[in-house]
Amino acid sequence: MTDWLMEALALGGVPVLMLVTFLSCLAMPVPSSLLMLGGGALAASGDLSLWSVALGAYGGAVTGDQVGYQIGHSGSEWLRRRAGSGRRGAIAMARAEAMLEARAGLAVFLSRWLLSPLGPYVNFAAGAARLDRLRFTLWDLAGEAVWVSLYVGLGYAFGSRIEMIAEISQNAVGLLAALAVMVVAALWMRRALKRAHAAGDRDAVTSPSP
């Protein structure tokens, strides 16, 4: 599939890149990061314009994020049933919800680039949780700018070594994502324990004396 998409990128150019980044933000299994590297490499060789590659990838990603948010906003119950039908989707959705509860704006921003595997699920969870859309959009715009600049820039600078750069970036993102999930889970548990402790104190104060 990856080879076919790379060939489609070389033939179809920016519209193919827009479509792939759009689909990736809806949890479709497409190699968006690799194609952005490829787009950067094609820009370096003069086959495509660097600005058109960057803007195309950015536009597709931001549009996909907005559609994902709307799916979560309009169909939260259906989305939960669908996510719950598969173990991987259910785990990703639970992690996304925990991240949003801990730090909503930061969760949106980091899941655009540093924790990109969780990005689509953060979109769904943000919509389902009715996170303020303007707040979501501002953090989303900032995060996608980092994501697109990083991968298109790497492709432009190291076009002859795309496979090596792609492997390194995937390994690094996987490691950082695992570490970030552990930190978020710890913060979420800490907050839950504080709430439980506060609720226990309130019960002790309001309970009648013997």
Score class of each variant (00 low, 15 high):
69 Y>T: 03
13 G>T: 00
176 L>H: 07
205 V>N: 02
109 F>Q: 04
194 K>M: 14
197 H>T: 15
120 P>L: 07
130 R>M: 06
50 L>R: 03
100 L>F: 08
28 M>Q: 12
134 L>N: 11
156 Y>G: 03
70 Q>A: 15
116 S>H: 14
70 Q>P: 09
112 R>V: 01
70 Q>S: 15
175 L>V: 15
21 T>M: 04
67 V>K: 00
161 R>T: 05
106 L>Q: 05
148 V>G: 00
62 V>N: 00
92 A>C: 14
93 M>H: 08
35 L>Q: 02
132 D>C: 08
5 L>N: 00
12 G>M: 09
31 P>I: 05
205 V>M: 07
62 V>L: 04
139 W>L: 07
118 L>P: 03
183 V>M: 10
77 E>M: 07
59 G>D: 00
54 A>Y: 03
179 L>M: 13
180 A>I: 14
158 F>Y: 08
47 D>V: 11
46 G>S: 11
208 P>C: 06
39 G>T: 03
48 L>W: 01
9 L>Y: 14
162 I>R: 10
197 H>Q: 15
126 A>W: 06
9 L>K: 07
160 S>C: 05
67 V>Q: 01
173 V>M: 09
104 A>F: 08
191 R>C: 08
60 G>N: 02
79 L>D: 04
185 A>C: 12
209 S>H: 13
57 A>C: 08
150 L>W: 04
57 A>Y: 05
125 A>N: 04
187 L>Q: 12
32 S>W: 01
190 R>F: 11
116 S>G: 10
116 S>W: 11
135 R>I: 09
125 A>T: 07
3 D>R: 10
174 G>Q: 13
45 S>R: 11
85 S>Q: 11
183 V>A: 13
124 F>T: 00
16 V>F: 00
122 V>S: 03
24 S>K: 09
194 K>E: 15
174 G>E: 14
57 A>S: 11
47 D>N: 10
88 R>E: 15
99 M>F: 12
63 T>R: 02
46 G>R: 09
75 G>Y: 11
131 L>D: 04
52 S>V: 05
192 A>M: 11
35 L>M: 04
155 G>H: 02
35 L>A: 01
88 R>Y: 13
95 R>L: 09
114 L>W: 05
90 A>D: 13
133 R>S: 13
147 W>G: 01
57 A>Q: 05
120 P>W: 07
88 R>D: 15
110 L>R: 06
55 L>P: 00
36 M>Q: 02
205 V>L: 11
34 L>S: 04
206 T>V: 13
125 A>R: 01
111 S>Y: 04
127 G>D: 05
99 M>A: 15
80 R>V: 05
129 A>Q: 12
129 A>E: 08
